[in-house]
Structures are given as structure tokens and as C-alpha cells.
């Protein structure tokens, strides 16, 4: 018999796997431009709402998974994920008190920081990707924040079937 907490962790892990898979699912080019980074959204949600987890480790592993899955320079996404997980955890008590729209704006700023780190490393390692469309995903990911706040708790608290 699993404890309630183990069950929640398992559900969250399942959700993370689905999010990782979504990032690699082939979709049309125009949709690809606005493909949200669901895994990052889940990591951010966890950072904000669960102080028991060691979120930096989770963020780092999630980032590394993305690097391995997408064949980018190893550690690139990992660094970005850790940076914003750190920022989020540093100010989580304040951010948690914000209304959802306000939170969304903060998340957007964090995502821009993350994207900038990846952009910067891309440039440093000699494969710059300077098209403006790379910034679109920050908007689409931030726009999903209210839904993440609403549906992730519902998903992880629902009893096992």
C-alpha cells in the first residue's frame, strides 16, 4: 500500500514523463514555434508549491533529461533550469502570495531569463540561433501558468484508479 505522498510523487513523475515526451512529439512547424516547455512549467510549479522536495536536484535532472533527449550541448538546459529554480525558491513565499496573473508575469520574466541563458550558451559554443521566434515559447509557456496552477493539484491529489 503506497502512502499518499509516494502516490503523489509517482503521479507527478508520470506527468513529467508525459511533458518530456510532448517536447519531442512531431507537430507542424508553426505549432512548433509556440510549443510550451511543459516540463519546465512542472518544475516551476513544484518549486513554488512543495518546499519538501529538493527542487534544485530535480530541476537539474529535468534539464539534463531535456539535453539528452534533444541532443543539445549537455548541461545547457540543466543550467537554465537550475538558475530559475533557484530564483523561484529564493522568492517562493513572496510569489505564492501574488494573484495568478501577477504570478504569470513573474514566471514570464523567469522564463525569459532561462531562455537567455540557453541563448547565451548557444552563442558561446558557436551555434547561435538568433531568430526572434525562439523567444515565442517563453510567452506560450508563461500563458499556461494559470492552468498549471489549477490542474496539476487536481491531477496529483486524485486517488489512484
Amino acid at each position: 500500500m503506497m502512502t499518499n505522498r509516494a502516490q503523489q510523487n509517482l503521479r507527478l513523475f508520470g506527468l513529467a514523463i508525459v511533458a518530456a515526451l510532448f517536447s519531442g512529439t512531431p507537430i507542424p512547424y508553426w505549432m512548433d514555434l509556440i510549443r510550451p516547455e511543459l516540463l519546465l512549467l512542472i518544475v516551476l510549479w513544484l518549486t513554488l508549491h512543495n518546499e519538501k522536495h529538493n527542487v534544485l536536484t530535480i530541476a537539474w535532472i529535468a534539464g539534463l533529461t531535456m539535453d539528452a533527449f534533444h541532443g543539445s550541448i549537455l548541461g545547457e538546459n540543466a543550467l537554465g533550469y537550475v538558475a530559475i529554480a533557484y530564483l523561484m525558491r529564493r522568492y517562493y513565499q513572496r510569489i505564492r502570495a501574488f494573484p495568478t496573473l501577477h504570478q504569470t508575469l513573474v514566471i514570464f520574466v523567469f522564463l525569459v531569463i532561462e531562455e537567455f541563458i540557453v541563448f547565451w550558451i548557444d552563442g558561446l559554443t558557436g551555434r547561435p540561433l538568433t531568430i526572434w521566434t525562439r523567444w515565442l515559447e517563453t510567452v506560450s509557456t508563461a500563458a499556461l501558468w494559470p492552468w498549471a496552477c489549477r490542474y496539476i493539484p487536481i491531477w496529483i491529489k486524485r486517488p489512484m484508479l
Binding site: T57, L74, E76, A78, V82
Partner: peptide, 18 residues
């Protein structure tokens, strides 16, 4: 928290360089 973040950042940087 900052120390841990720093460690992970250093690890990532090492990976990137390697």
C-alpha cells in the same frame, strides 16, 4: 540554497565545457 545552486551551476558549466 545559494551554495547548492552554485554547485549545480558549476556542474552544468563543467558538462558544457566538456
Amino acid at each position: 540554497l545559494g551554495l547548492r545552486a552554485l554547485i549545480f551551476a558549476a556542474l552544468s558549466a563543467a558538462l558544457i565545457v566538456a
